[in-house]
Design a protein around this nucleic acid. Structure first.
Lengths: 236, 236
DNA sequence: AATTTTATTAAGTCATACATAATACAAATT
DNA sequence: AATTTGTATTATGTATGACTTAATAAAATT
């Protein structure tokens, strides 16, 4: 056996810490037992005994699971299974000041991708009431809304409403997460400054498409509406 | 003051635990000091002393930060700042067997949104080499690939390559996360069964669009390609 | 100079004790 | 009898000190 191979073997042996093992054991256990939301899990001391480790380790493993949203622990009551909130977890580290530039740019792009791609969901789920609300939103916008910076509130109101219409909760939460990062990137020096400030397809036009148009038209319209952002992304 | 108001006031007092405070203190500290990736943070005992809490609390706070990907701790060296991997965190709880049905469906939809919305990124970043690779991938596909189930590998190869072409790392990671869930939902009873198995726009056609077409054409094509999935979503 | 051994350091693990908060149940008040 | 109040219990939260382990640095050996 070659030396490198031996080294590889050793490396793959077990680099994981005790807590790692306990954690995956516990997760596995919950899944095996098909525990449902609300079900209680054994107490810390019981787990410590049955797994033969200290309560410290158990607590650390449980803490991780708590962070992942798998469990929720209350004094006296112990811990109960919960349904993890995927994006709630993410929100903890979704901090523009902490993320690196590449990720920040990626997230900027991600928003554009989502808003163009959500067309079909919008058309399938939009109601007359939604359209009415959208019209109210755009009617409150100042005319000639050329400068993004001065209209953040309107941007948020309009685009946020779109996410709401999709009826996709994960998407909504994702947006709320991405929003601050998007704004941060927009206002930071990470992207080239906008050259022109022409407006393209307006919010009003998008509403019109939603009312009378097709998903394809909406995608094209939204792509156009976001042109300034795309220009900044693709500027070299 | 009404009784209910008093109660509300009391509730908002401070339900956060000691670890919560220490955690936010630490995160704030890192941001204030503008620490960069690779910089070391004080040792556990030092932190415990300077904040006037036990090492237990410090460890728990640090553990959380480690889970969020903010720091990485090594024996002897202490902990160093790292750039958080947004989706790495999520992956822990991205388990189809644990997530609730609504979230699962939402994620199913999310994939469709992404793949339609990513058109512009694709067109801007695709290279001749990429197109060549895509052609290889589709040439390996069996003709008349009508049944999704028998062609998962090809689906993954093709669509995975698309994500790669976007050059958006966050998007790529997100996809890798969503993929198992998507498959799970597809094969589960969560959605109505497909009625027809007609194929619409094929992989081959999509490649052609990527080579000679426009983003708009690609979006329309991809929407059509995913028609079977959409049909299942919208089936009542 | 290069390698091996040793010492040191900081995180990982353990055990124990006490604090705190939520619950259940008994007791007291009306 | 019904509701409130007090009390005991219980499980998590916090604190402390000791020990283990692994990575690094320093010293010793070749």
């Amino acid at each position: 056996m070659a030396v490198t191979a031996i080294i590889e073997d050793l490396k793959s042996l077990d680099t994981s810490t005790l807590v790692d093992k306990v954690e995956s054991n516990l997760v596995q256990l919950l899944m095996d037992r098909k525990l449902k939301v609300g079900d209680a899990i054994p107490k810390e001391v019981e787990l410590a005994e049955s797994l033969g480790v200290s309560r410290t380790v158990i607590r650390e493993a449980l803490l991780r699971m708590r962070m992942m949203g798998l469990i929720e622990s209350k004094k006296k009551k112990g811990a109960v299974i919960t349904s993890p909130d995927l994006f709630g977890i993410m929100s903890k580290s979704m901090n523009p000041h902490i993320l690196d530039q590449e990720t920040l740019k990626d997230i900027f792009e991600l928003r554009l991708v989502l808003e163009i791609g959500m067309a079909d969901l919008l058309f399938h789920r939009i109601t007359a009431k939604d359209i009415k609300e959208l019209k109210v939103i755009v009617s409150n916008e100042p005319p000639m809304a050329k400068n993004y910076l001065f209209n953040i509130e309107h941007e948020i109101a309009f685009h946020g409403k779109l996410y709401e219409i999709t009826g996709n909760d994960a998407l909504k939460k994702f947006q709320r997460l991405l929003l601050p990062v998007f704004d941060y990137v927009h206002n930071s020096g990470l992207l080239k400054k906008q050259t022109g400030t022409q407006t393209f397809v307006s919010h009003k036009a998008l509403v019109k498409i939603l009312e009378n148009g097709t998903p394809d038209e909406f995608r094209t319209g939204m792509r156009n509406h976001l042109q300034n952002h795309f220009a900044r992304i693709f500027a070299k």
